[in-house]
Amino acid sequence: MNITALSKEELLVEFEAKINAEQKIEPLDWMPDEYRNHLIRQISQHAHSEIIGMQPEGNWITRAPSLRSKKILLAKIQDEAGHGLYLYSAAETLGVTREQYIQWLHEGKAKYSSVFNSPALNWADMGAIGWLVDGAAITNQVSLQKTSYGPYARAMVRICKEESFHQRQGYEIMWKMMEGTKDQQEMAQDALNRWWWPSLMMFGPHDSDSPRTGNAMRWKIKRETNDYLREKFINKTIPQAELIGLKIPDNNLVLLEDGTYKSGDINWDDFWKNVNGNGPCNEQRLAHHIKAHTEGAWVRESAFVSGFQK
């Protein structure tokens, strides 16, 4: 067998040609370190977000006000756990174990979506999270179905199918609350007030302030820019809010002549405060995960040891 060693430059040319031809990069394919590291960061951050995102909703399962809503919420959180599982599996194909990813999370070296550092304070938050947070996530994830890394793209296809249910279920909660008593309407508006801006921040900094966008776009990891996706989400969501009588908490929101909306300025100080660990629930969310993982150590060890028994 003839093995021809290609130089790094030649490999890069081949890699980029594949990407330009819209072919997927697979785990055993050669890829630049920068591409691999970008994916390690992005997919694990995505996986951690799904898992940490179980907490604000998990907080309400035992208080869900009807059996139907309890079932839907449980199933939704279970979906999130499943998404975490697909994504950790996709991330592991890059040569890093799940255990390592979790350790990086616990050490603060890996991030998760800052939106989950907001507290879930009333039942309408279950609606707002589904409608807005999952709605923002799906806007981003639809474009990621075409991402260049095969395992990530395939995970996204499955995830998107489920996320669209979540968004509709979340909106249904908001709609029911707005059809309900004055207390319920106030809860719904309060939830929107608190989740609107964090949802817009989910798309990340403005394109002009997003240092990693360049290569990620060139290598088709990201397919659309932060600002494009954010605007898409805003334009989709505002009519939904208005339809059920909710007011978008943005006094500077402008309806443009072409029928699209321009939102007021996002408070990026809040965003960075949150990203840097000082949001309302950062410590709580991480401590919860560390506690569960630590308390589960003896269970994992026993399961492992028992594997050698008959």
Binding site: K71, L74, Q78, A292, V299, R300
Partner: peptide, 26 residues
């Protein structure tokens, strides 16, 4: 079992736990 959601020793077990919780609610 619902109280235990997101507190399992590992992800697969967390999923199994909520699966059982869902069956029982159903």
């Amino acid at each position: 079992l619902s109280e235990y959601c997101s507190k399992g020793p590992f992800l697969e077990e967390d999923l199994a736990n909520t699966n059982v919780a869902l069956d029982l609610i159903g």
